[in-house]
Amino acid sequence: SFQYVPVQLQGGAPWGFTLKGGLEHCEPLTVSKIEDGGKAALSQKMRTGDELVNINGTPLYGSRQEALILIKGSFRILKLIVRRRN
C-alpha cells in the first residue's frame, strides 16, 4: 500500500533534491537524492525513493520534463505531494 505525503518547501530554489526516471525512461518519477542541509532535507518530509505525483496542485503523469518546468516556475513556495510505499 502507499502513503501520500504533502511537502511544502519555502524560500526559493535550489530546493535541494534531484529527480530520476519519468515516462521518458519508462519508470516512475522519483527522488534520487536529497542534499544535506538543503530545503528538502530541512523539511524532514521527503525521502529518496519517493515518487512525485503532484507539484503546486498540478497532477503529474510521470514526465520528468513537465515536472522540471513546474519546479522551475516555483518562486518562493514549492508544494509537492509524494507517494511512498508503506
Results as ranks from 00 to 15, higher is better:
F2I: 07
F2V: 03
Q3K: 07
Q3E: 07
Q3F: 12
Q3L: 11
Q3Y: 13
Y4N: 06
Y4G: 02
Y4D: 11
P6T: 15
V7K: 07
V7S: 00
V7W: 02
V7C: 09
V7E: 03
V7T: 00
Q8G: 04
Q8Y: 15
Q8H: 10
L9K: 04
L9M: 10
Q10A: 13
Q10I: 15
G11S: 03
G11L: 02
G11A: 00
G11H: 03
G12L: 04
A13Q: 09
P14F: 06
P14T: 01
P14R: 05
P14Y: 03
W15G: 06
W15Y: 05
G16P: 04
G16I: 05
F17K: 00
L19Y: 04
L19P: 07
K20C: 13
K20Y: 08
K20R: 12
K20G: 14
G21S: 00
G22W: 03
L23G: 13
E24F: 00
H25L: 11
C26Y: 13
C26F: 12
C26M: 10
C26I: 07
P28F: 03
P28A: 09
P28Q: 06
P28Y: 02
P28D: 10
P28W: 01
P28K: 09
P28N: 08
V31R: 03
V31G: 04
S32P: 02
S32E: 14
K33Y: 10
K33V: 11
I34S: 02
E35Y: 12
E35W: 10
G37S: 08
G37I: 02
G38E: 04
G38C: 05
K39S: 07
K39H: 07
K39A: 10
A40F: 03
A41H: 13
L42C: 10
L42T: 09
L42I: 09
L42Y: 09
S43P: 00
S43Y: 05
S43T: 10
S43D: 10
K45L: 13
K45R: 11
K45Y: 07
M46G: 03
R47F: 15
T48C: 14
T48K: 11
T48E: 15
T48Q: 12
G49Q: 06
G49H: 07
D50M: 02
D50N: 06
E51T: 06
L52S: 01
L52A: 05
L52C: 06
L52G: 03
V53I: 08
N54E: 13
N54D: 09
I55E: 00
I55R: 01
N56F: 07
N56T: 01
N56S: 03
G57A: 02
G57T: 08
P59D: 15
P59V: 07
L60P: 07
Y61G: 15
Y61I: 14
Y61A: 15
Y61E: 15
S63C: 09
S63K: 09
S63M: 06
R64Y: 11
R64V: 10
R64I: 12
R64L: 14
Q65G: 09
Q65C: 09
Q65Y: 09
A67G: 04
L68P: 02
L68S: 14
L68W: 08
L68F: 09
I69R: 15
I69H: 14
L70C: 08
L70A: 13
I71Y: 04
I71A: 03
I71R: 04
K72T: 11
G73N: 15
S74M: 01
S74Y: 00
S74Q: 08
F75D: 13
R76W: 05
R76P: 12
R76C: 08
R76Y: 09
R76N: 14
R76I: 02
I77W: 09
L78N: 06
K79R: 13
K79H: 14
L80R: 02
L80Q: 06
L80S: 03
V82E: 05
R83V: 05
R83K: 13
R84V: 01
R84Y: 14
R84G: 05
R84A: 03
R85G: 08
R85Y: 09
R85V: 10
R85E: 14
N86S: 11
N86W: 14
